[in-house]
Structures are given as structure tokens and as C-alpha cells.
């Protein structure tokens, strides 16, 4: 088993490849890291030269294929989740204090701003993306899921593999032990899920938190209020076919809260682990 770790998109990325340590497999791991950095350079909002930053600054762009695809995925997710997942929460995130790369939060004063509602209009044409005036996009979570999916698919040609970028994880191929055991944090300790295919993602308010004048802030914005969610959940882990889908599901189920979220996971058949703020763990969607 080859293991390669690096830092990208503001998180620790770990890549596992079940293959002998040949030059080809080592080159594939290096290519995976390169792909992550390439996508980060397009999708980050913290680099003023990225395609996303230029779109947010100018309102229109002739996008690279990857940006166009992620925006379309994000808008599709907004439609399917009834707006619970929304890429236009950029200004609300900034207003909540997430106005710089997470490593830098705390290194300077956070400017108080008014929160901004989400739901802005985004036009995606054949060769152009245009934003309604005042609308800006944040593709942090879904962009990471997209990078995880892409990287896992690239590595799949070299053997069974797993790509884990913080909470977004995708696997391709069946390993010798028939499933990948993955540790998930719960209130009672660690729960191990055996995943034979697909992906999982975890969303929560227990990390990426910071102090503001109005108390603790976090990065999970509720698009209905434009403010950090006051969900009764601490974190949700959802399993899906792709990391993009798992990321959207985890965020939507988190914002739904414990009662609605667990019911929705059962209805949709989405295996999920819910950890509540008061320290309980609930399994849903067929997990036992």
C-alpha cells in the first residue's frame, strides 16, 4: 500500500494506492497531488488570480471547463436541496468572518459586516458564466469534493485507491480486504465504516470555528438566514456515489437538523452518521 500525504485546499490530503511501489505508481501519486493543486488554483476564492476570484470580482468570465462543471454541479445541488446547499453564500461567509484562508483566521481583526442573503442568480451559458450584480460564489466544499473525485478517478488506473481530503473521501476499486475501513468521529469515540465503493463526506460546525464579537462563528452558513447555522447537530457524515454528492448531502442534512435530517436520510436511503450537539450519535439510511 502506497501512502502519500500533502496539503492543499486548506486541508491535509491523504492518498492511498494499493499497488507495488513502482515508478509508475509513485508517478501516479505525484500526478494526484499535481491535479489537486491545479484544481485549487482554479477554484479557490483566496487567490485573487484564480478563475473563481476573477469571476467574483468581474461578474463574468469565460470559464475553464472545471470551473464551469463545478458551478453547474453546485447549481444543480441548490435546485435539488431546495436551496439548503447554495454556492452564493460567499458574502454571508465573509460577513461571518471567513474572509481569508482558514489558517489565517485569528491572525488579524475580523471586520464586522452585515450578513448577506443567499439565493443569487447565476447564468451559465455555453462559453460564459455571469453573476447577478452583488452575487459572488464560494465553491470551497464542493470544489474539494470535485478534486477528490477527479483525483480518485485518475489514480484508479493504477489500482484500488482512496483519496481523503479532510472530510471528503472517495474510493475507487476494491482492495484486497474487500472494503476500505474508514474511521468516523462520533460522540462515543470512533466508528469504523467499511466502504466498498463510492465516497463519503463529513460536514460540521466543530472545526473551522472562530471567535467573533457576537460569539463563535463557523463556516456552515444557512442560506435561509445568511448566518452560521444554529443546527442542533455537531456534524453529519454521509455516504454517496461521489464525493461531490456526499458533500452536498452532508451539508444539506446538517442544515436540516437532527429530526428532519435523519428522516430524510432514511427516506432517500442515504447511509449517514449524525452527531448531535448534546453528545448523541444516530445512524440512519440503513446503517446499523
Amino acid at each position: 500500500m502506497e501512502r502519500h500525504a500533502f496539503r492543499a485546499m486548506g486541508t491535509d490530503v491523504e492518498v492511498l494506492l494499493e499497488a507495488p511501489p513502482t515508478p509508475e505508481s509513485l508517478l501516479a501519486l505525484a500526478s494526484a497531488e499535481q491535479e489537486f493543486h491545479r484544481l485549487e488554483a482554479i477554484l479557490t476564492r483566496f487567490d485573487p488570480d484564480s478563475a473563481l476570484s476573477r469571476l467574483n470580482a468581474e461578474g463574468t468570465i469565460q470559464p475553464p471547463a472545471e470551473l464551469r462543471e463545478v458551478v453547474e454541479l453546485a447549481l444543480g445541488a441548490r435546485a435539488r436541496t431546495g436551496g439548503r446547499f447554495d454556492p452564493t453564500v460567499h458574502d454571508a461567509l465573509v460577513a461571518a468572518g471567513y474572509d481569508r484562508s482558514f489558517e489565517l483566521i485569528g491572525s488579524g481583526p475580523i471586520t464586522e459586516r452585515c450578513s448577506t442573503p443567499a439565493g443569487g442568480r447565476v447564468h451559465v451559458g455555453p462559453a460564459l458564466i455571469a453573476l447577478e450584480p452583488g452575487v459572488r460564489l464560494d465553491l470551497g466544499g464542493i470544489g474539494k469534493g470535485y478534486a477528490v473525485d477527479r483525483t480518485a478517478s485518475l489514480l484508479a488506473a493504477h489500482g484500488p485507491c482512496l483519496v481523503n481530503a479532510g472530510g471528503d473521501l472517495a474510493i475507487r476499486g476494491v482492495p484486497a480486504q474487500e472494503s476500505w475501513p474508514i474511521g468516523v468521529e462520533t460522540s462515543e469515540g470512533e466508528l469504523t465504516l467499511g466502504l466498498a465503493s463510492g465516497a463519503l463526506a463529513t460536514s460540521g460546525s466543530d472545526r473551522r470555528r472562530w471567535n467573533t464579537a457576537n460569539g463563535m462563528g463557523h463556516h456552515l452558513i444557512d442560506p435561509r438566514t445568511g448566518r452560521p447555522s444554529d443546527s442542533d447537530l455537531l456534524r453529519v457524515t454521509a455516504v454517496a456515489t461521489t464525493a461531490v454528492e456526499a458533500e452536498v448531502l452532508a451539508k444539506a442534512l446538517f442544515l436540516a437538523g437532527e429530526r428532519e435530517g435523519t428522516a430524510e436520510a432514511d427516506d432517500l436511503g442515504v447511509p449517514a452518521v449524525f452527531v448531535t450537539v448534546d453528545g448523541r450519535t444516530r445512524l440512519a439510511g440503513g446503517l446499523e
Binding site: M1, T11, E14, L16, L73, G76, R80, G141, K144, L162, N164, A165, G166, G167, D168, L169, Q177, S179, W180, P181, I182, G183, V184, E185, E190, L191, T192, L193, G194, L195, A196, S197, G198, A199, L200, A201, T202, S203, G204, S205, D206, R207, R208, R235, T237, V239, A240, T241, T242, V244, E245, E247, V248, L268, G269, V270, P271, G286, L287, E288
Partner: peptide, 25 residues
């Protein structure tokens, strides 16, 4: 993603030691 016909992958709770851990992204 296709939410209209979600096809969640095969997953279950196991006792094997994890090869990696996931946490809030």
C-alpha cells in the same frame, strides 16, 4: 449526483482498524 434515484454504495459498520479517518471538512 442523482438525487432522484440515489444509489448509495455498499457500506456497513466493521471492526477492522481504519486505514484513514474522516472528520469535519
Amino acid at each position: 449526483p442523482s438525487w432522484s434515484a440515489p444509489s448509495a454504495p455498499s457500506v456497513g459498520v466493521v471492526t477492522a482498524p481504519p486505514v484513514t479517518n474522516t472528520h469535519t471538512s
